[in-house]
Amino acid sequence: MHPILKLVVQRIALGLILLLAVSLVIFLGTEALPGDTAQAILGQSATPEALANLREKLGLTLPAHVRYINWLWAALHGDLGVALTNGVDIAQAIGQRLGNTLFLAGCAAAISVPLAIGLGLVAARYQGRWPDKVISGVTLTTISLPEFVAAYFVIYLLTQVFPLFQPVAMVFPGMGFWEKLQAVALPVIVLVMVVLAHMMRMTRAAILNVMQSAYIETAELKGLSPMQVIWRHALPNAIAPIVSVVILNLAYLVVGVVVVEVVFGYNALGQYLVDHVTKRDLPVVQAVGLIFAGVYIGLNILADVISIIANPRLRHPK
């Protein structure tokens, strides 16, 4: 077997084991909370008989490991159970919101990743000179603002001072792609501001690190222009660290943007999760937790695989 294939298979297998471990932690974590689901549904004033009946009905009398296996088995088949608070099928409720989450994250990523890498390259090219200082200063400012501050600032600027957009990012099933794009413009701008600096700085640092190498001097002595040197000779050797930071930010865009969702009234997974945490709706919390963990682990496997493939020593063994 080609060593690359072997490494990739290893990473994926490790990821699956990790996901299994996370599912166990999610299950045990929600188990460890005081009270149980029946108590939560019926409230403090429930009679012991009613509680016992409901526990029987929900299968809560079964031992914990049996319930874990049942839950996991059903989840693997796409059955995430029903929400306790409103009886809605969780898989269905999540489906549309997950789409919204991925749409927002995808739009933010499509802008921020190329922009961050581009700015990082420019900053590295003009290291210590004014373009570098401007880029570093601006991105550092945007990352230093709390998300909700940045969000309200953007809303004020682009709906009041320059009334270009709607302050609320409502999307409905059946909206056209272009309409949806317009709707998410403001949250996308905020998210780009939040994730730009981290990726930009890593790109800059990784490139500057590679620029110390002897082969960069070789490229300079070939008479290549500074940007050619960076693009052709530095970037291919700086991919691994850049990719790992890009992927971390992508994961954040999927799982960590609840504040932005709330500010813009965007109906997506983060808000859904927070709503149901406050209601102690354990099946929903477990289901969303599992999805977030899956996204996180999946993206990190992707980062590992890209780093492996980017390494010529692994791609072309002796």
Partner: peptide, 20 residues
């Protein structure tokens, strides 16, 4: 550079780009 005058360094191992 690289046209009228070219350069051969002491450590070719370090002077070749490992990714190309």
């Amino acid at each position: 550079r690289g046209r009228e005058v070219t350069y051969v360094s002491q450590s070719a191992a370090a002077s070749f780009n490992p990714a190309k």
